[in-house]
Simulated assay, not measured.
Amino acid sequence: MSKITHIKLDNFTSFAGLDQAFSQGVNVIIGANGTGKTHLLKVLYAACAVTVGEDKDKGFALKLRSVFNPHEGRMGRLARRQSTSVKTKAVVTREGGVKLAAEFSNHTNKPEDVKVTGEASWKKEELASAYIRSRKCWPTRQASWPRQPSGKLPLKKSMWTSSSVPSSPS
């Protein structure tokens, strides 16, 4: 199974421009509220989802619309807001240089009007994704984590062991 290696967003939601390569291992995304962390993950998820399962028959543009749920389903609502007309582009690259791209403007209404390129070659190999809801996990686990004598949680992750961090309840 291949991995996503790069993402480029131009005038997409909160991004005026993002050109980001990913490392081979784990990538951590950190930022203040409203900076686009979730939007970045949604684009990556949509790119993965169209290669597997029930979404394999969906196109990338349709999957973007269902993931972001823009007002009245209008794709143009995903364009970064400006006082003038704006062109938007999202490009996801995987190992081997295979690219999946979606281009549209703030005037685009339907997913069928989005120019998607590279979709046929993108779908030739599955890309699996996983979504871990940290907000749901934190309160459950936090109460059971080992605490310092002051009652505070330890600051170093190295203090946690597999036996001291319980699995989340089913």
Rank of each mutant, 00 (worst) to 15 (best):
G97I: 15
A130N: 10
S129L: 00
L78P: 06
K56N: 04
E95P: 05
G36E: 02
A120I: 09
A79M: 00
L100H: 02
N106S: 05
V52K: 02
S85M: 11
D57P: 00
A120D: 12
R133C: 01
L62D: 12
E72R: 13
L40K: 06
G97M: 11
A128K: 15
C48W: 04
G76I: 11
K42H: 13
L44I: 06
K42W: 09
P70Q: 14
D113S: 14
T117E: 06
V114T: 01
T93W: 04
H71V: 11
S85N: 11
A130P: 02
L62E: 13
A49I: 04
R94N: 06
V92Q: 00
A49R: 05
T140P: 08
E112R: 11
R94G: 09
K136Q: 14
K89I: 08
K56G: 05
C48S: 13
R135S: 10
R80A: 01
K37M: 10
K56I: 06
V116H: 00
S66Y: 09
F60R: 00
R94W: 05
V114C: 00
H71Y: 08
L127K: 03
R135T: 09
F68S: 09
S121C: 05
C137L: 15
V91I: 15
G118V: 06
A46Q: 02
T38Q: 00
D55N: 13
A46K: 01
E126Y: 05
H39I: 08
L78I: 07
